[in-house]
Structure formats: C-alpha cells, structure tokens
Amino acid sequence: MPSEAVPVEERLFSLVLALVATEHGLTKAEILSSVQGYRQRYKPGGDNASLERQFERDKDDIRELGVPLETIELASDAGNNQNLRYRIPKGAYDLPADVTFTPQETTLLNLAAEVWREGSLSSESHRALLKLRSLGVDAIEPTIGYAPRIRVREPAFEPLRAAIDKHVVVRFSYLKPGEDTATERTVEPLALIKHEGRWHLASFDRGRQERRTFLLSRIVGAVTTTRTAFTPPEGDAAAAALADLDRILANGRVRIRVVPGSDAETRLQRRAAETLADDEFVLNYSDSNLMADELASYGPEVVVLEPAHLRDRVVQRLRRVVADHEGTAR
C-alpha cells in the first residue's frame, strides 16, 4: 500500500495540527481529502470506508492522549453525520499558563512516575513525563537512592480500569477470602484503591444492591466487560472508599503474644497499635481471613489471644497445613 510511506505518527500529528488550526471545525471529507497521511489514499467520489475507519481509530488514540478532540453538529445539519465537524479548541488543548513546576516538583514527579513499572500506568506516567519535559525544567538531581515501586500484578486491573473510565458494568467470579467456591458478581466499577499492599475495587454490586469492595487478587479468571452503561454516583468514589478502608482497618483489633527474639517480634511489633507488654500487643486488621493467613504464617512465633474467632481461624489453618503435608509425597 502506498499509504505506508507516511508514518502513523506523522498522520496523527498532521491531524492534530489541522484540527487545532481550524476555528469552525473540519468535516470528515475535508480531513480525509486534505490531511497528510489520509489524502494520499483518498478516492474522490469513491469508497473511502477503510480510510473512515482509520480516522475513527485515530480520533480515539488522540483523545486517549488527553487531547480534547470535539465533535460539533451544526443546528442546520442536524441528523446528517456526514456534516459533523471536528476540531480541537486551543484553550482546552493548552496546558494552563500558570501550571508550571519547580525543579523540586519536577524531581518528585519523575519519582512518582517511576513507581509504576508495569502495565498501562507505567506507559501513561512516562507519557506524562514527556509532556512535563516540554516545559523545559530539569530535575534538580537524578533521584538517586530511591527505587519505589507499586506492584500491579493482578490481571483484573487493566480491564477494570478501562471499565471504570467508560462507566460500564462488569462481571467476574469472586473467591471471597475464607470461602471455598467462587460466586458470580455483577458490579458497577467505581475506583481502584491500593491499601495495605492490596488492590481493591470499590463498586456498586447490582446483585446485592449495595456498595461492595473486592480484592483484585481474589477475582478468579477473566473480567467480562458488558455494554451496559451506568451513571456513576456524585462525589469522589475513590476518596470515600479509601476512608472506608481506613475505618475498617482501625476497627479490626487483634491481641497477640510473640516469642521474644523471633522474626515475628521484629516484624510485627513495629506495626503495633497498642503495646500491652514486651511480648504482647494489639494489631489492626481489615479482613479477618487475610489477617489469619498472615498470623498463621508465623507458626509458633505468634499466639492469637483474642478475638476468639480469629484464634479459631488461625488454628484451623494450621490444622489444614499439617493434614496437607503429613506423610511422604504421592
């Protein structure tokens, strides 16, 4: 195809320039017949269906970069989508003049981008850094010394994030901590929250008709994205969910005793919400099953004193481990 002569980025760049420069907008026919990368393939009066599909994909890609590509319908043209006009209003495109960053702030933003090393968050934060660099401010020092990282291992993360942005309902099966079988959930996804090292989905559960928070690591198999749109509630869903998680954490209290000089003592003591004796303290927890998992891992180094239900859960786990590992293999 002769079109390959014009690189994709040149076509996209030319499209942005043309749409920023136009005041009243350009029609699709005007764009396809005149803009670099399209015009070479445009057939006047002919079938341009594949070129039109190309244009639709290009619009999506440009919008994904945060470029405000508008579609306008003139009142006189109502109903005729061949006469839709496209443009990029410069005021909405330009970074506001008072948004500038000091060298210290630039350094911190560089480090914030480094936190993501996998998935879409990594490519997006690096793209944001390109835009930041266009302001010409250098970081004061390379961020020597820190290599912070937030993990995004859960395969459910990307489809959920896309569904949140599009406001569409999702379905997945969920293995609740402490249960053996997964159940099917249909939810309106609202926000993703990393709390206590775990990714959570804040959502409205359509089956149960209430707000529910799910652990991404407990979503089994693929997330199904439906075409059903929903209207997100007013307010900052992410901040509300984070506050909920903090409140739940503060309410969960477990009193434990540790063996002096053990790994458990070194690692758990510094998380103590309250110290009752040298070897006895209180920890906060948000989910009793996950806390029981963690405390069971310390084997004889930790004894749960109360609550009784948490003590029982730990004992039950240890019994299961013994049963699963007794005798020789196979």
């Binding site: 945060g66 835009k131 302001l135």
Partner: peptide
Amino acid sequence: SPRFSARE
C-alpha cells in the same frame, strides 16, 4: 505544552 490526560 499539551494537557495531561485523565489517566496520565
């Protein structure tokens, strides 16, 4: 400079 996208 262009604005940052919602996701960026």
